[in-house]
Amino acid sequence: MSAALAEGHIASAVRADGPPAIQLDKVNKWYGSMHVLRDISLQVATGERVVVCGPSGSGKSTMIRCINRLEQHQEGRILVDGTELTDDVRSLDAIRREVGMVFQSFNLFPHLTILENCTLAPIWVRRMPKKDAEELAMEYLRRVKIPEQAKKYPGQLSGGQQQRVAIARALCMKPKIMLFDEPTSALDPEMIKEVLDTMVGLAEDGMTMVVVTHEMGFAQQVADRVVFMDRGEVVEQGPPEQVFNRPSTDRLKLFLSQILRGH
């Protein structure tokens, strides 16, 4: 799909020292009696870029949403930046400050301008003066290449532009970790590239990223590790060339054949 992206893998920024950025330990989750996450164990090192893929309903979105507790797991432990996710509101606030999230459907605030979307959290959470927050926001809007749209409202922007604003909005909190939940699935094909380019730029700067996506080109270029999930389990994981070229399980082989046919 994105041939331009696939020109060689960018340098890894993994730092093995220190605690892992994210650690999932035998995490289980049920919706009613439906078992959606089964004994998920996963470690993401600081600076590591993990791409999660798998068929729909495999639990990959649920897993990523558990990491900043938009969903609650019922068994096991999740540690983010060394802090365990519990019901404790203070630790949850601290974690959410460090973890940025980008959604499939953008979820920009329609009643606020692009600039206000970006400054809201720095002002109310980081307690930044408005002027500083606006300067910060403009800096990130320049980085996602839409500073000229700052005074517009989300409804006036294209899908790709909106998703880039959503990335800038998350970055304005200066997070240590970024989570992407199918960031390009709701976009028209011609807009996917502009969003992926932004994400590649972020990866080059050494951001710790967990990305749920079907963009295999992106995975090959950026990922340090690809995690394949199916039916709530981590079936296989490894470097992209190993996962894509030498799959060891039938489920992954089938998935890859389907996704290649799909393209």
Partner: peptide, 27 residues
């Protein structure tokens, strides 16, 4: 007010009171 609005605001680390006043009520 779509569920996504609540989630996006929570993911940014906004407190419930701020979410209500700045995000939910105006919409």
């Amino acid at each position: 007010v779509a569920q996504g609005q609540w989630e996006a605001a929570q993911a940014l680390g906004l407190r419930p009171g701020v979410v209500l006043r700045q995000i939910v009520l105006p919409q």
